[in-house]
Design a protein around this nucleic acid. Structure first.
Length: 311
DNA sequence: GGCAGTCAAGTACGC
DNA sequence: GCGTACTTGACTGCC
């Protein structure tokens, strides 16, 4: 079990998801912002490593407008070395990476143009991970999309559009249950149609359940991940009090986190904390999970002196 | 420097 | 049919 948080680190005084307005787009601006984002990402990853946070979600904004027609600049070529170097660091320290395209990416939309744009955006995400040289355990998590008044038909359309995707997207795509439309059971159905692994969001499952027990959702979601996909990924959050149902908590509820660890004791997985205070909650979770036999911390760096002693 | 309006993109829902 | 929430800022123009 690796523990992580998404996209932003509030302790480090830099941003790995800096962007700009479409109106102010220029090749120079893009180059400058991507250089900043990658530099900041390196610093975040170092911070994470030093704090035993080995799971991280890279922001979709790392290359702003990457899939937009305005972007004709070969960011892939320009930042090849930087991305490869970052990937080397991730692999060397056995960190896990995910990405999460936002709500505009809808693979099952009845609008062909929306699907076309969504595929272009997914391809951009896959390219980032490929250029880092990461294996297929680095995933892109996506919601099933809209319902359009007929969920069965919408699932079929997802499946049909999925078959159009290129290999590099298929290798990385996983489907996540959402808080309104598609439950874990719906995602399992999608798994049967497409073979896609199911990323389990335990908070969404609480808000939008389908009648399975927590241990049943863990068991069935785990079973959709093959060896090449790595361990099951799980998203965790809790309800922010006094806010609409489904609103993510400001800070981690340690009581509920402890309960999750206890209730999931028979399963191993990597855990993403979708909590607003980001690394602060991750630090608390890491401290609490330290005694859990599943918890993975950074591997001890054996000093030269120790190596000599060991012969 | 501070503030408020706005930002590439989609869907669902209430009025 | 239109406005708004979602998630959550943060960019940008104006003062």
């Amino acid at each position: 079990m690796k523990i992580g948080y998404p996209c932003i680190n509030r302790t480090i005084k830099c941003r790995g998801a800096k962007t700009f307005r479409l109106k102010s787009y220029s090749k120079q601006k893009l180059e400058q912002v991507v250089a900043n984002n990658l530099d900041c990402l390196c610093r975040i990853l170092e911070y994470n490593l030093n704090h035993d946070i080995l799971f991280f979600r890279i922001s979709s904004q790392v290359v702003p407008f990457a899939s937009h027609p305005i972007c004709t600049f070969s960011w892939q070529k320009r930042f090849k070395a930087e991305l490869r170097e970052m990937g080397k660091f991730i692999k060397e320290h056995r960190m896990r990476i995910s990405m999460h395209p936002d709500q505009f990416i809808v693979l099952n939309s009845p609008n062909e143009q929306v699907v076309k744009r969504s595929i272009a955006e997914l391809d951009y995400h896959a390219q980032v991970l490929d250029l880092m040289g990461l294996d297929h355990t680095a995933k892109i998590q996506l919601h099933a999309g809209g319902v359009y008044g007929d969920k069965e038909f919408a699932l079929q359309r997802f499946s049909r559009n999925y078959s159009l995707l290129n290999k590099r997207i298929k290798n990385r795509l996983v489907v996540e249950n959402d808080d309104k439309s598609y439950t874990v059971c719906d995602c399992l159905k999608l798994h049967r149609l497409t073979g896609l692994p199911v990323l389990l969001d335990v908070f969404h499952d609480r808000v939008n359940p389908c009648g399975l027990s927590l241990s049943a959702v863990f068991a069935s979601a785990s079973a959709t991940w093959k060896k090449k996909d790595g361990l099951l990924m799980v998203d965790f959050s809790t309800q922010e009090k006094g806010r609409p149902r489904g609103a993510h908590a400001q800070t981690i509820d340690l009581k509920q986190f402890r309960a999750l660890l206890r209730q999931s004791a028979n399963f191993d997985f990597d855990l993403m904390l979708e909590i607003k205070d980001k690394e602060n909650s991750a630090l608390k979770a890491v401290a609490l999970a330290a005694d859990d036999p599943r918890f993975r911390r950074r591997e001890k760096i054996v000093s030269l002196e120790e190596k000599i002693k060991k012969g």
